[in-house]
Design a protein around this nucleic acid. Sequence first.
DNA 1: TTAAAATCGGATTACAATAGTCGGATTTAA
DNA 2: TTAAATCCGACTATTGTAATCCGATTTTAA
Lengths: 135, 135
Amino acid sequence: MIKLSKKIEYGILALQYIAVHSDKIVSAKEISEQMGIPYEFLSKTLQQLMKKGLIVSQHGIKGGYVLGKNAADVTVKDIIIALEGKASFLDCFVSSDGLICERSPNCTIKDPMEKLQSKVMQVFNNTTIAEIATT
Amino acid sequence: MIKLSKKIEYGILALQYIAVHSDKIVSAKEISEQMGIPYEFLSKTLQQLMKKGLIVSQHGIKGGYVLGKNAADVTVKDIIIALEGKASFLDCFVSSDGLICERSPNCTIKDPMEKLQSKVMQVFNNTTIAEIATT
DNA sequence: TTAAAATCGGATTACAATAGTCGGATTTAA
DNA sequence: TTAAATCCGACTATTGTAATCCGATTTTAA
């Protein structure tokens, strides 16, 4: 199925929440309760976003997260890559040279599919957390 | 993960093959062998495409499939819907009224996500089998 | 100094969807 | 009548997602 995973969904919801409440540090617990996201799972997701620099963490009591970049500079594509390592439609496009599936390099749909993917990624790359937070 | 399923991949490969060989009837066996797709699985996929009218079948020996529509009129979106019933990113957008997930109707990302999805579907809707077969 | 509340992180489990297989029925051309 | 094909339902295997558990560490504040 062509769909976004729960992790991506939670990641977008969380980043939006943090962006909207940028006047304070927000904890995973707060996001979890306000957004209705399983706490443990959300924590993992936030830790991943932190490792990729999309958010910054503060340890200890009164701790939590704030944005690590300007909301206008974080795209949906950034979030997908941060949480899943890659953003590609077919296995063909995962490796750097684009040739890892068994049909390559004689795959008859490789080129048109690569164009398709490029267009879709452009869409993901043109949507930012800033837009999502204000719309 | 944001990726196309094997079924979609096989469906595109098969439709492309049938389009390219439109001068004859092609069997599932031929596509399976030429494209390196598991026969049983491919058969199921072709039957689904047939039910949705994207291809037409002929029974019996010397039977097989031909396109059911002009290749230029069959889009990737059509294929996704034929094989998976829907084409939506998040659960929110599956039902007709767009309100089926537990966060709706107060979901804070519903509107921007719907726009995003609409743009991506536009991309899928602008790529046809004719293009894929000639590129 | 101690307790509470938070992030961190590995391991594990539960579940669902995808991918693939099997067996048999039906159709049709030679 | 046989062979080669579509058709169809049920089943299994595998994988990936989603969720959970347990404990360690950090930091603030009483």
